[in-house]
Design a binder for these strands. Structure first.
Lengths: 198, 198
DNA sequence: CTAATTTCTTAGCGTTTGTTAACGAAAGCG
DNA sequence: CGCTTTCGTTAACAAACGCTAAGAAATTAG
């Protein structure tokens, strides 16, 4: 099955005709290392399926720092969700960490499909709900647990692949600590692999 | 207009017949102070519109602490979103902070309406999207800014009403700090009302 | 393959936070 | 209305974090 159709199929079964309507919108795109899929301020809203490579999402802070908040790998859907949903300039950037291949389509095409096909509307609902519970889980982790506990939870999770492909300073930002502090936490955890989990 | 219909109307215009289908499911409920709408482990999934009063949402932590992560006031929709969407036991509790009046309906009734009425499915999508961008904004605030900066942002926001009706130790948890630390931050900010914002 | 750049670690220092505890104020309850 | 409980502030101490800087290690680019 087409990788995008397979992605959607995890949420809804798409009739052939509906799929073809989306397929007609797809455009391949290659990103070099460090090239952008979205830059802060962008108003041309696009969605993409990542076929090969890896990307990071980050927010620029007033002091010039770029705070990385998320990563995308193969068969992830990427977009500036806030920009698309509000139809506003993007507050964030999405940038390739490696040479990356994408399948891109305009967000406006998706909203047209929402109007035309109830099955797409359902997909849109399930997709938003899926991301919502993931984001809420991550927010509550930030509010409930210490940086060290969050790192231990990351180690114990299936997301360990994040660690493998991503520079550690970006993982640090993902966990909400500075690179220096993250290095100390790593040393601490390596010395004492078991508890504490709080 | 009925307050629930007015709430939904901010997202979609509901035909009379569709509205009546939902209206038939509504049940009023009163909560005393400290009474629960959802308790951790609950499997009977319900949604409610808050008509009068206030509630807090909190996660129980392994050490016994209850970490408050959200508040609900008049004309807010409340539910254990993770529990409803996953059809799993609730990981969190929702508890009345004041005597509270609710209009309750089963989450299963909503999913039936999703099946029966495309306009409800659209409402469900927009509702999830709306909550997603709110949650993502809050997560990125946690990752980007210091506790003091988050408190200053809260002061500058329209959410100042949170401060008024809610015990400060719960606001502290909402910001991701302990009550003692929050008290110090408040004193610091009161001494120096302007910067720093970082 | 080598040179340049970036990344990771470690250290020192000042600041902030968490914890515990005590006291006073405020609010709930009978 | 008075009693009890909860809540907010402050203090003291230990632990953790952010920042700066320097050296080592790894990666990238030519």
């Amino acid at each position: 099955m087409h990788p995008l159709r397979a992605y959607i199929h995890r949420f809804v079964a798409l009739p052939d005709e509906a799929w073809r309507a989306l397929e007609a919108e797809l455009q391949p795109r290659q990103l070099k290392r460090h090239e952008y899929f979205v830059q802060p301020g962008d108003t041309r809203h696009e969605v993409a399926l990542l076929l090969r490579g890896a990307c990071r999402m980050f927010y620029p802070r007033a002091d010039g720092e770029e705070v990385t908040t998320y990563f995308f790998f193969e068969n992830h859907l990427l977009a500036s969700y806030p920009a698309c949903l509000r139809n506003a300039p993007s507050p964030l950037a999405i940038q390739a960490l490696e040479p990356t291949e994408l399948l891109v389509f305009p967000y406006a095409a998706l909203t047209r499909l929402y109007d035309a096909w109830p099955v797409f509307e359902r997909f849109g609902r399930l997709l938003a709900e899926y991301h919502l519970i993931g984001t809420e889980e991550r927010l509550s982790e930030q509010l409930l647990y210490s940086p060290e506990a969050r790192y231990r939870a990351l180690l114990a999770s299936s997301k360990t692949k994040i660690m493998a492909r991503i520079p550690q300073r970006l993982v640090a930002a993902y966990l909400g600590v500075t690179p220096v502090s993250f290095s100390r936490i790593r040393a601490r955890v390596a010395r004492n692999p078991g508890p504490p989990a709080g």
